[in-house]
Write a protein that binds this DNA or RNA. Structure first.
Lengths: 290, 290
DNA sequence: GTAAGTTACGAGCGACGTAAAAATG
DNA sequence: CATTTTTACGTCGCTCGTAACTTAC
């Protein structure tokens, strides 16, 4: 019918006002564009331009045609974007979590359970995660409480307990437990991607100085190299630090113990079945699934 | 971006189910279509088809893509149609009338006044004409009464008086005037494209037999060749019939005398100016316009 | 003279068709 | 064996760029 390049030419002309400017924009020679526009007129069997010897401009038909061209090209662009996004969504599972530990632990499971899919993950706030789950940005999210919607299913996964790691020389090193407020005012090392834990730190230790570290491995090195307090949890394997002559002291605040719940759409149940079996096996190691 | 022929190919495939059927529909060879579809996948960077050795079908991406293709192609089709229609409207003046005489008389005036435009005309009922005027189907309409809308302008044009033409031997031939009801029951010749006059005939002469004739010139010959009554008006030049030894007797009914009004949008005033000046000159031959 | 548009001519890419192969029922 | 899809190869058309011409400011 009408080749796309003709519409592109027309639109470029409308947006620039001259054939030469438009042709430059399109990385095309003037004559090529000139001929294209004549061809478009031929095809439509309508004049689109007012031609003076040395000047050319859209007539009323042309204005109308350019409007249509814009609409059509927009729609084509949308087509490409939407199809690519849809395809990507068919080949990726996106995991959203309110904290890093579930991502560290669940991503490898997803990767090997769905070997042909890409696993993406993000840390975000609870509201954002729930919205993302409903609009299919995420297929699975992890929160510290179950979801209440009828369309969602929640299964309890694991608990995470916070520890503070200290060098033996630290004044608090001999304690069997500390409250966060006791650490207020200290200078501490902190991983930056910790989701809701960050809010907790700000609330309980507003006076503390946190040396934020974006790189997880770099943080580990800093912990080893310094005498500063740092946080750890039961879900994180930091054998280095244990060997490195640090003591782990449990945080006593009730907020420092959370239960994680995997939440997903009931619709996804079939597809996620293989993953869910593995999760349930972890939670109840005694129960064997066939 | 995406060439149109690729979208056409995809759509044809969806509508037929096999590449071979689709290619035939497109007057194209199978291999050409096969390659096109691969190219489309290349461009989108997405698989659109499930391919078995001997069979090919759309996958979910493909279904989505085909939907978009249909939408885009529809819009292109609409673009072509609308632009052509718009262009035609810019080059034609369409005259609508409730009776044939105004068309016969005004069309030549319009043709020579707007030599570069096409003049089209139609006979229709009053309601249809007014609707057509507002939606730009017509630029000028002729009714037997002025219009009342604020956006419209009406100017009185000419009057038309109905006559019956009879051979001298006819019983009514000696009268100086007749009422239509006196003709009820007779067999008469009638031109078919007479607009509202037809309704009048049906109302006043329900018992008459009308021999309808679609061709105006053919009607003239029939009138000459037969002794049947026929109608004429002051606006029609039928010199042949006058010479042919027929008598013209005025119809006395008040409905047989009508005034015609040219009605058009005030917006059109500028464009129609040249035409309107001619009309006014006809109505008031004494008044000269510069 | 510079900048814009058109016309003319030749070149190269790409979409096409034909032919042949592979696979399925 | 007929039908369908894919691969291979040669051809032709269509769009492109370069060059030359015309016109206007």
């Amino acid at each position: 019918m009408i080749d796309t390049y003709l519409l592109e030419g027309l639109l470029a002309f409308r947006n620039t006002g001259t054939l030469s400017a438009a042709s430059e924009k399109l990385h095309l020679s003037q004559p090529a564009l000139s001929r294209s526009m004549r061809k478009l007129e031929d095809i439509l069997d309508v004049t689109l331009f007012e031609r003076q010897k040395n000047k050319i401009s859209l007539n009323e038909n042309g204005i109308m045609a350019a409007d249509y061209a814009a609409k059509i090209l927009d729609q084509e662009k949308e087509m490409v974007e939407r199809i690519r996004a849809y395809d990507r969504s068919r080949h990726t599972i996106t995991l959203g979590s309110c904290a890093p530990a579930p991502i560290f632990m669940l991503t490898p499971i997803l990767s090997q359970t769905y070997a042909d899919m890409t696993i993406a993950s993000e840390i975000n706030g609870e509201d954002t995660l729930l919205r993302g789950l409903s609009d299919n940005t995420y297929q699975i999210i992890v929160l510290t409480q179950p979801a209440e919607s009828d369309e969602l299913e929640s299964i309890r996964w694991q608990s995470e307990h916070l520890y503070i790691t200290l060098p033996p020389a630290h004044p608090l090193a001999g304690r069997t437990g500390v409250h966060l407020r006791e650490l207020n005012g200290q200078t501490m090392l902190l991983y930056s991607q910790i989701g809701f834990w960050y809010d907790l730190c700000m609330e309980k230790m507003p006076e503390a100085r946190f040396l934020m570290q974006d790189e997880y491995t770099a943080l580990g090195e800093l912990v080893q190299a310094s005498a500063l307090p740092a946080f750890s949890t039961n879900l994180v394997r930091n054998d280095d630090e244990r060997h490195m002559n640090r003591v782990f002291i449990p945080i006593l605040d009730s907020e420092a113990r959370v239960d994680y719940y995997c939440i997903f759409k009931k619709k996804s149940n079939t597809f996620l079945n293989r993953f869910l079996m593995q999760i349930r096996a972890e939670v109840n190691p005694g129960v064997k699934h066939k």
